[in-house]
Design a protein around this nucleic acid. Structure first.
Length: 191
DNA sequence: ACCGGGATGTTCT
DNA sequence: GAACATCCCGGTG
């Protein structure tokens, strides 16, 4: 029996939440995927965070209450999804970087025609957002609420006892901070 | 396999 | 005007 993650789960430092999110399940409509790669973004301490220079219209959700989705548009064509963490007023989030597809694969293939194999469907932050149909309309969605169309579930698969850890991908500022976690050996990780 | 470049437009300086 | 928490395609070996 899969249980929705409660708000207290998110109301912590994103560097604690991030490894705990490994092997949790993201559900959007009939599509489901198991989280296998994440990155933590803190606010004031973190030059890699969108919120490093303070709140702007784009980053407002990141500074708000935990358990919401922060969805941003990048490179002129891609959406990426974060889970907002920490206390209300703090800037903190965890970027969802890769999933193992579990259900709704046919729908994902339709949304991601460029994916040649199923392991390419969700193996990157913009890929998984596209596969599950997450876009700007989901920004600010409260995934801890009972009536949320987007959910994070615990199906009692424990996170890896020894998760892989590395620096974050694609950053210039804050590139040295080792705030990426992943399921070692998983074939669905990003490139 | 690896590498290089183009797509595309919002956001902030 | 530059940067960007990316992806895809087409080249070469």
């Amino acid at each position: 029996m899969a249980m929705r993650l409660q708000r207290e789960f998110y109301a912590r430092d994103p560097r604690q939440v991030a490894p705990d999110l490994l092997n949790k399940v993201l559900a959007v409509g009939t599509c489901r995927g198991r989280i296998v790669e994440v990155e933590a973004y803190a606010g004031a301490d973190d030059p890699g965070s969108h919120g490093y220079r303070g709140m702007t219209p784009r980053t407002e959700v990141m500074f708000g209450p935990p358990g919401r989705l922060y969805v941003y548009f990048t490179y002129g064509m891609h959406w990426c999804a974060n889970v907002v963490c920490g206390a209300d007023g703090e800037c903190a989030a965890v970027l969802l970087r890769a999933l193992t597809p579990l259900a709704g694969l046919e729908e994902m293939r339709e949304r991601r025609p460029a994916a040649r194999r199923d392991r390419d469907l969700c193996s990157g932050p913009a890929k998984l957002a596209a596969a599950l149909g997450i876009d700007g309309g989901a920004n600010g969605a409260d995934i801890a609420a009972a009536d949320s169309g987007i959910e994070l579930l615990d199906d009692e698969t424990a996170p890896p006892a020894e998760p892989g850890r590395s620096i974050r991908i694609g950053l210039s500022a804050g590139a040295h901070l080792p705030w990426r976690w992943y399921v070692p050996g998983c074939v669905d990780l990003s490139r």
